[in-house]
Every structure is written in structure tokens, then in C-alpha cells.
Design a protein around this nucleic acid. Structure first.
Lengths: 143, 143
DNA sequence: TAAACTAATTATAACAATTATAATTTAAGA
DNA sequence: TCTTAAATTATAATTGTTATAATTAGTTTA
């Protein structure tokens, strides 16, 4: 439960100051349920913080990433997207409209182990993305 | 075998003209065994094509991607990397030095199926990356 | 509480990767 | 060989992101 509270606790523990901007960015990330870009966040908080700089958004997203609260997702053509870290999950991405849907799937630990064994890497984590066409885009397709 | 020949065949079949630049870019991609950036390719072919524009490299990488010969890999901080499509494989990436090692692992087809079932997506393909520290970087670590 | 210090924010400029544009050149079929 | 459409080039523009310096705001200490 209360992810925001836990996130703020993490910031306190790691000695990162809690500013109104950081609070708002975290809150937005947690509540949005989407995978917003830095600019999405910037625009969404424009009303609350008319003077906030876009650099603040980027800076804080980097800070959040460094303390493990946020994951940065990059795709070919668009700008980076940011995902609040909850449980381990993967993404199913529509190649037509860009929609990203979370997908829970347990246990690719064995892949990490095998990769480590074969390559000699010290493996930390992994990332899996599945590409396709979402139901909405499929139904709009011309036959 | 002869991947270049097959690739050129693919271009012919899809009605894409075979130009000296395209030939050279494909050849470089196949032989390099690395995962070059557009600029890597541009620099590597400078000697052969002193007048080639960097736009040509980007244009053709896009063309190759569109006909399925090339995959574009994007990571957080660096520029896109391009990977000649051979058999399905994944990447093990060193978070310290950026090295990318290919890693063969069969059968994540079930993940695709499950993702499709759960989300209703028409799934085309997937991408898996494993992050860690390579043996060289691990041995250089300060203890 | 006030002063001093450190970190965060802002505004702006710079940068780097990529894409768009228009003119020129080239490949491939008639 | 001529024609036409496509590819390449050179260049400019765009966009996402980062760096810089000045200002502001939290925190700590006296």
C-alpha cells in the first residue's frame, strides 16, 4: 500500500531532500498508471508549478532512478519514458499507437542465471518487452 | 551461410534498390560482429565513401529495419545501436563499459503467448536484455 | 531564532542524435 | 540510350537531454 509514503521514506533514508517538486513528480508517477515522458510530467505539473523548469523534472527523475524508485524505458523513436518501480513486470507495447501495458510474469530468474553462467557477467537485472498490436488498433485495421 | 547475399536478395524482393552505400552498410553490419551506432558505420565507411552523408546511413538503416534486416536497439544514455537480424538472440549488457554480448536462449514463445492471451494484443516479437557487469569490469572493481 | 551552509531550482545556453528539405545524382527499366 | 523514380548529398532544423551559473530554499548549528 501507500507507495508515495514508502517512496518518501526511501528518499529520507538515502538523504535526498523532499521538495514540493519532487513530491509532486513522485505523486504523478505513482498515480498516473501510465508511462509518462519527462515532458508529460512537466506539462502535467505546469498548473501547480508555473515556474518549474524542465531541467528539474529531468534532474529529479535521474535522482529517483539512482535510488531505485524509477526505471527509465527507452524505445527507438520516442523520448524516454519513466516507470515507477513496483513489482517486477514487463511491458507489452503496441507498435501502432505506442500504448504500453504492464504484464506480470514470474520467474525469468533462470535466464539471468544462465546468462551469467555463459557470459561470465555479474547479472543485476533484466528487461523484457513484447511488441505487437493492441486490440484497439487491430480492430481499426483495414481488411 | 552467406548472409550478405541473402540480405541483398531480400532487398531485391522488396523492391529496394541496391546502391554501393547500401551494400557497404550491410556488409559492415554483417562483418562487424559488434552493435555499431549510425556514427560508427559512418566513420567506418568514410574511407570508401568520402562524400557519404550521415543522413544516408540513417535513411538506409531505417530502410533495412523496415524490411526486417536490422534491429534497432536503444538504451538510456547512448545513441541507438543497430544489429543485423540473424537468429533470435538476446543481449547481455555491461552497465559499466557498455559492452554488448549476444546470448542465445531458446523458447520464450510461451511468454509471447501468455502476454497475448492476457492483454489481447496481437504479438509480433519480443526483446530481452540482461544487465550486469562484465568479467573485465568486475575484475577492475576496487574492493 | 538567526546565521551559515549545502542542496535544489530556475533560466538559459549548449549539445548531440536524428530528421526534414531541396537540389543533384544515380540506378534500373522501356 | 533515355526516362523516370528513387537515392544521395549538403545543409538546416528539430528535439530530447544535459551543463552552467545565478538564485532560492532547506537544514544545521550557534
Amino acid at each position: 500500500m501507500n507507495q508515495l509514503k514508502e517512496a518518501l521514506e526511501t528518499l529520507k533514508e538515502t538523504g535526498v531532500r523532499i521538495t514540493p517538486q519532487r513530491h509532486a513528480i513522485l505523486e504523478y508517477l505513482i498515480n498516473s498508471m501510465s508511462h509518462p515522458t519527462a515532458d508529460d510530467i512537466y506539462k502535467a505539473l505546469e498548473g501547480k508549478f508555473p515556474n518549474m523548469s524542465v531541467a528539474t523534472v529531468y534532474n529529479n527523475l535521474r535522482v529517483f532512478r539512482e535510488v531505485g524508485l524509477v526505471k527509465e524505458l527507452t524505445y527507438g523513436d520516442a523520448s524516454a519514458r519513466f516507470d515507477f518501480v513496483t513489482t517486477h513486470h514487463y511491458h507489452v507495447i503496441c507498435e501502432n499507437c505506442g500504448k504500453i501495458v504492464d504484464f506480470h510474469y514470474p520467474g525469468l530468474d533462470e535466464v539471468e542465471q544462465l546468462a551469467s553462467h555463459v557470459t561470465g557477467f555479474k547479472v543485476n537485472n533484466h528487461r523484457l518487452e513484447i511488441y505487437g498490436t493492441c486490440p484497439e488498433c487491430t480492430s481499426k485495421e483495414v481488411h
